[in-house]
Amino acid sequence: MAKRIEFAETGGPEVLRMQEFEPEALGPRDVRVTNWAIGLNFIDIYVRTGLYPVSELPSGLGTEGAGVIEAVGEEVKEFREGDRVAYATGPLGAYATHHTLPADKVVMLPDSIGFDQAAAAMLKGLTVQYLLRQVYPIKSGDTFLFHAAAGGVGLIACQWARSLGARLIGTVSTPEKAEFARKNGAWATINYSEENVVERVRELTDGEMCPVVYDSVGRDTWETSLDCLAPRGLMVSFGNASGPVEGVNLATLNKKGSLFVTRPSLAGYADTRERLEAMSQELFQVIANDSVHVNIGCRFRLDEAGEAQQNLASRHTSGSTILIP
Rank of each mutant, 00 (worst) to 15 (best):
N311A: 15
S216G: 15
V128K: 00
I324L: 10
T127F: 01
L164P: 01
G60V: 00
Q310P: 04
E24W: 12
E78A: 11
G257W: 03
Q281M: 13
G243I: 06
E176R: 09
L61A: 02
P110Q: 03
L283C: 03
R263E: 00
K183F: 00
N311D: 10
R162N: 08
K105T: 08
A119Y: 07
V236C: 06
A308F: 02
G60F: 01
L61E: 11
G125C: 06
Q129I: 08
L266G: 03
V85T: 10
Q117H: 11
I69W: 09
C158L: 02
F144R: 03
A288D: 12
L145W: 04
N254I: 09
Q134H: 14
S318F: 11
T171Y: 03
V261D: 08
F146Q: 05
I169E: 02
V85H: 08
N41G: 05
A8C: 03
T321L: 11
M18I: 14
R182K: 14
N254V: 10
Q134T: 14
G114I: 07
L204N: 02
D303N: 15
P102L: 05
A94M: 08
V213A: 10
W222K: 07
M122W: 05
T174M: 12
A270M: 11
N249T: 08
R232W: 05
I138C: 01
H293Q: 14
A181R: 04
A121K: 10
V54L: 07
V72I: 11
V135K: 06
A251H: 09
Q19P: 00
E195M: 13
T262K: 07
V213P: 13
M1D: 09
D111R: 13
A118Q: 09
L51G: 08
G218W: 13
F180V: 09
S216T: 11
P23M: 04
R299F: 06
L259S: 10
P23W: 08
L123I: 15
R273H: 14
G60Y: 06
V106K: 05
T262V: 12
V292I: 09
P102A: 03
W160Q: 04
W187E: 07
N254C: 11
T127H: 02
F300H: 10
E203R: 13
E78I: 00
G306C: 02
S237E: 08
P244Q: 08
T34V: 15
P175M: 03
A8L: 04
N254H: 12
C298Y: 15
T143R: 06
D111H: 14
I169G: 03
Y214A: 08
C158G: 00
D142N: 08
T10K: 14
A188G: 07
R32N: 07
R167D: 01
A71K: 09
A161P: 04
E307Y: 09
L234H: 00
P325L: 10
G185P: 14
A305Y: 04
A166K: 02
L250M: 12
V212H: 00
Y130G: 01
E81P: 12
E199S: 05
V54M: 11
H293V: 10
P325H: 06
A288E: 14
Q129P: 00
G247C: 10
A305K: 03
G50L: 03
R182Y: 07
P137A: 06
M279C: 10
K124P: 01
D104A: 14
E14F: 14
